[in-house]
Amino acid sequence: MKFYLRRIGFYAVTLWAAISLNFFIPRLLPGDPFTILMAKLQRSGGIPAGTENTIRLLLGAAEDQTLWEQYVTYWGNLFQGNLGVSVTNFPAPVTELIGDALPWTLGLVGTATIISFVLGIGLGALAGWKRGTWVDSLVPSTTMLQSLPYFWVALVLIFGFAVTLQWFPIIGAYDVFTFNGPEWSWAFVGSVLYHAFLPALTIVISSVGGWLLGMRNMMVSTLSEDYVTTAEAKGLRPRRVFTTYAMRNAALPSLAGFGVSLGFVVAGSLVMEQVFTYPGIGKLMITAVRNNDYALMQGVFLVITLAVLAALFLMDLIYGFLDPRTRHHD
């Protein structure tokens, strides 16, 4: 029980720290984002007083209030689900824009992360099993994959398969000329899958190496444990030693890593989404940055952080259940 209490305490503090960071960053850094933003808004028409106050508060330009009052109001707004108004898509609330973008990122990056994990763990286990053979000399080449900047992989894939060969579309999440918006039909699902192929391939290529390497190294370590030797001495079939004795235990750290990477799904491919113009959360954030849309940017950052926290918290609980040692450790 103490384990869970500690974890809950940690996440509560982290949550508070992340939200406060979001509050303080615009105040601590130089520059006058409020004036920039207001000038921009004025050009696009009148601004209701309420909106101006929200933005003023968000960017720390409310001189008539003390810092503490601003901080309290900021929390109040947050609890009401009010993250301010976007300038790019005035007057759409930030929450609405984020809500539209989130499913795309979750679907694409989530699926690709799972594919990459399963592939990497499988290949890594085999590479560990075949330790001391020619396979060992192939292992270092996976670091090449890891060192590739993933948005560059995306650029190369677009150049090869979308521009030169024209097998796949260059941008978007679905065919905008055929469909007006998301709808439930087989044709639409097909279009989404077709558009998601290259982005997903990018993620798999640039992340599979890490899983493979980690799993291979754990597998090598596990295979020299005494209980594996015992299992082999008992005369168990190699297949059984491989799956039940070695692979299961070797996969534990990778599983923890998998939880972490699931947490970072929302954050993980900001740049890649920009390359493919994929309408996810990353594209939204970069659009916000390009247009000095600070409210939207801060909102996206907050949502990304919250998503990471929630996923990690969940994984922590599950992992404590899977591997009881973590509960008694520390």
């Binding site: 850094l29 954050a267 900001l270 954030m285 996206v300 952080t305």
Partner: peptide, 24 residues
């Protein structure tokens, strides 16, 4: 370790983007 833990959990690239975009 609390400070470390918090920094570990807060996603790096978005944080960099936010900070960098305020610095002109």
């Amino acid at each position: 370790s609390l400070i470390t833990g918090i920094m570990l959990v807060i996603p790096g690239l978005p944080l960099m983007i936010v900070v960098a975009s305020y610095l002109e």
